[in-house]
Design a binder for these strands. Structure first.
Lengths: 233, 233
DNA sequence: ACCTGAACACCGTTCAAGT
DNA sequence: ACCTGAACACCGTTCAAGT
């Protein structure tokens, strides 16, 4: 953004190497997202971030009161980039697109995504986003209760799916003594039978199927009034 | 379990207070689950665990090679407690019961649950569990591909739902500068309209509805062959 | 205003040592 | 075999100080 390039004041004293761009919230946030993807959420520290930025860890605290504030800012920064589908579109199609857009955040920032997913969204930016999405459920023709409940069920699915796609197979804490492939086939035949469809390259299809299940429920409920399928056992 | 009470050898030297039960994997795991719920997953440390057990932090390392191994053992310990519904029952009903049983783990151990949910299940114990559950999807009449995909979509929903119920509203990192209630109604009307149905006491109903949506998809797919609803936009 | 660096109270874990 | 305690390489953050 604003690269003001500040002319270097040569005082003969120390002459900092290439006169670093001054710190700013924007620069810190950008670097933080990079460092998180390199080091993981656990490995991310203010000290490493400082190193990346060419400053002391403590300099960051002049722009953010705490590490938690910085992480919150990162959530907002990603959520504002989610494109809101045009209002002219069918509401269910808008919800579908939001699903894929939210998922994209996970795929673009897999190691940061668990923080996004487990983060309670109650900042201005994230509430604005939630408000838009919940509005789509209303526009789909749902009464307030069905709107609230189906939005939430939809977001449960979405959260679980993207968490699995980003943290499940790729990285994520895996068991320390895993089972060999031969044992797997012998001892856990159903897991082995499902295995081929669990390949990362095929997970997109699974995501689609689950998403369509949730979307069909929205359509069906809008048609038949009140939440159907509620007659649990 | 085995409280062997080992008679205290009085050597006149130090006379440890009530001659502590010797350490064991079982005792350590039990205490760890307590400390995690008291301190949270982040606040849980081997030092605090040692304090609780009346030993040095390092003594734990004689029973577990690392903190990660201990946490893995805790996942296994909880997963084995999940009751497997009798095979005589309708497969869909068995899946429903597994859903509620898994959810119970989250409610009994809310602060540990995110670790369970994000943990890749590939230990013997957890694979045995997965094998049973995937088998229920086969028993429901699904071909291998639908079995794999609907199991996974179901578990996405379940994971997302229980994560939200345990980490979402209760604790979990919440935004640092939240929005006031008046602003909420004024600026985010759809969120406000959904608010009443987001009360913790009403979340059980939302969980039920989403679960039934997923179960209905299993029934419908078993009836009509191959995964229905796959015709995404 | 913006940044530094020492210091504090924590971590997980290694290692040599004690019984 | 089981447990200890000092030590190492890390954390987030406070605070007084530098420019």
């Amino acid at each position: 953004m604003g690269s003001s390039k500040k002319s270097r004041k040569i005082k003969g004293k120390k002459l900092r190497q290439p006169v670093r761009e001054p710190l700013s919230r924007d620069r810190i946030e950008f670097a933080a997202l990079l460092v998180i993807e390199e080091e993981g959420l656990e490995g991310f520290s203010t000290r490493k971030l400082g190193e990346r930025l060419g400053c002391e860890a403590m300099s960051i605290y002049h722009h953010f009161p705490s590490k938690a504030h910085l992480l919150n800012a990162l959530v907002d920064r990603l959520v504002v980039t989610i494109p809101l589908p045009p209002k002219e579109l069918d509401p269910v199609e808008r919800i579908r697109r939001i699903g894929y857009a939210y998922r994209k955040i996970g795929h673009d920032h897999p190691r940061f995504f668990p923080y996004v997913a487990l983060h309670r969204m109650n900042s201005r930016v994230t509430l604005e986003f939630l408000n838009e999405v919940i509005g789509m459920f209303r526009d789909a023709g749902l009464d307030p209760e069905s709107m609230a409940r189906l939005f939430r069920a939809f977001s449960y699915y979405l959260t679980g799916a993207v968490l699995d796609e980003t943290s499940g197979y790729a990285k994520g804490p895996s068991a320390v003594d895993p089972v060999s492939d031969e044992d797997l086939v012998r001892l856990f035949p159903h897991v082995a039978a499902a295995g081929p469809y669990f390949k990362p390259s095929l997970l997109g299809r699974t995501f689609d199927i689950g998403l369509e299940i949730m979307l069909s429920a929205v359509t069906a409920t809008a048609r038949h009034g009140q939440t159907e399928n509620g007659g649990k056992k």
